[in-house]
Amino acid sequence: MKNMILQCAIIFGCLSFGELLVYLTGTKLPSSIIGMLTLTLLLQLGFVKLDWVKGIAEFLSFNLAFFFIPPGVGLMLYFDLIKAQFIPIIGATILSTILVLVVTGWVHQLTRKNNGVSKK
């Protein structure tokens, strides 16, 4: 992974731009999502070359799941609440996740066909 410093500068630059926007506008959007869109825009406009961020971006996105472990361990704080309402929490989460998966997929498949752009 060459030029780690530049790569970090770009990623954290985009992120802090997001933080700035949140600070200035008070928007409810998280800084990370704004930073992600900023990075996409900079790449699209050619201000940032793909080579400049490719290494760290691959490292971070391939290991995204790992960074969830600490908030996941936070489950231990809510064992009592979760035990008391286990069925509603788990039932609603499972059913809703299945619904979202299928509804999103179906609406996309249907509208894409009707739109006449189903060519691969």
């Binding site: 790449l43 971070l60 960074f67 908030p71």
Partner: peptide
């Protein structure tokens, strides 16, 4: 470790691009 969640979300801009 949790700290890297935010930069990792930013990094998803690359596959998006």
């Amino acid at each position: 470790i949790e700290f890297w969640l935010k930069p990792a979300v930013v990094a998803l801009g690359v596959p998006l691009y």
